[in-house]
Amino acid sequence: MRYSYEYKRKCVELFRQGIIPDVPEGISRDRFLKYLNKWMRLENANGPGALKHNNQHKIWEPDDKLVLVSKVIAGQSISSVAIDAGINEGMLYQWVRKYKIYGYNGLINQKKGRKPMNPKIKKVGTRKPPKPDESEYEELIRLRAENEYMKAEIEVIKKEIALREQKEAARLKAKKQRSSKNSEKMDSN
């Protein structure tokens, strides 16, 4: 459930006066008191503006993240550091986890979204590639001819290998037949 800024301020003021506000429907009393305690700590640490919903997400620099992570590693609780900084505990937990796994590099902001299917292909739009100049065109023709020559060479080598294998197979077959004839002569004696 998302509470409005005015509702949070009203609840905090009532709680400071010693009055426990009415618990909204669909939430337990204990859970609501935890929220209330968190709102009070947030307001004490960062002022009443900390209770407002931020529509804009702040982009944290790796050095700023490192300061908060080092506080947690030094022994402070994640919730107290998060409240002091005015951020979500889950976000700080992720920073600590990434720092423990990847070190400082884990705190560097990464690109978001799905990776491209083929990263080598970049969207160019409607722009056509420039035409090669004369020397590049000649080089292209030379390389294509060289490529065709190499393909033909490879085919010749493959055929030679296949012929050698056929000859070897025929030689082994003949040798096997000779040895079987010799063994038949020895058996008949």
Rank of each mutant, 00 (worst) to 15 (best):
V67G: 05
P130A: 15
S80C: 05
Y104A: 12
W95N: 04
E61I: 08
I87T: 09
D133M: 07
I59H: 10
I141Q: 15
I78Y: 02
E89K: 06
S79Y: 01
I73E: 09
P62C: 01
G90V: 10
I73D: 05
I121E: 13
I87E: 03
I83T: 08
P129L: 10
V69A: 00
G125I: 08
Q76P: 00
V96R: 09
I59P: 00
V72Q: 07
D64F: 00
A74F: 08
K98P: 03
M117A: 14
D84K: 05
G125E: 10
L68M: 14
S77T: 15
Q94D: 11
P119R: 06
G75N: 02
I83M: 13
P116S: 12
W95F: 06
V67D: 07
S80N: 09
V81E: 01
V69T: 07
K98L: 13
N118D: 15
I83S: 03
S135N: 14
E89H: 07
R97A: 14
K123T: 01
Y137R: 14
L68V: 07
S79P: 00
L68D: 06
V72I: 02
P129Q: 14
Q110F: 03
K71R: 15
Y99V: 04
E89C: 12
K120N: 13
K65S: 02
E136S: 12
S135D: 14
V124C: 10
I141P: 08
Y99E: 04
V69F: 00
W95M: 05
Y93L: 12
K65C: 01
Y99I: 04
S70W: 00
L107W: 00
E89V: 08
Y102D: 15
S135C: 06
I73L: 14
A74V: 08
V67L: 10
P62E: 03
G90Q: 11
Y104W: 03
L140T: 13
S79I: 04
G86N: 04
G106K: 05
S79F: 00
Y93S: 14
K128T: 09
N118E: 12
L68Y: 03
N118H: 13
K98Q: 13
R127T: 10
P116W: 08
K71S: 08
I101M: 09
P62W: 01
G90T: 09
G86R: 01
Q94L: 08
L66S: 09
G86V: 01
G103L: 00
I141Y: 00
K100I: 10
A74N: 15
K112A: 10
G103V: 05
M91G: 11
Y137S: 15
E61A: 09
I78P: 02
W95Y: 11
V72T: 06
L92I: 07
K128E: 11
I108W: 04
V81G: 02
S79Q: 06
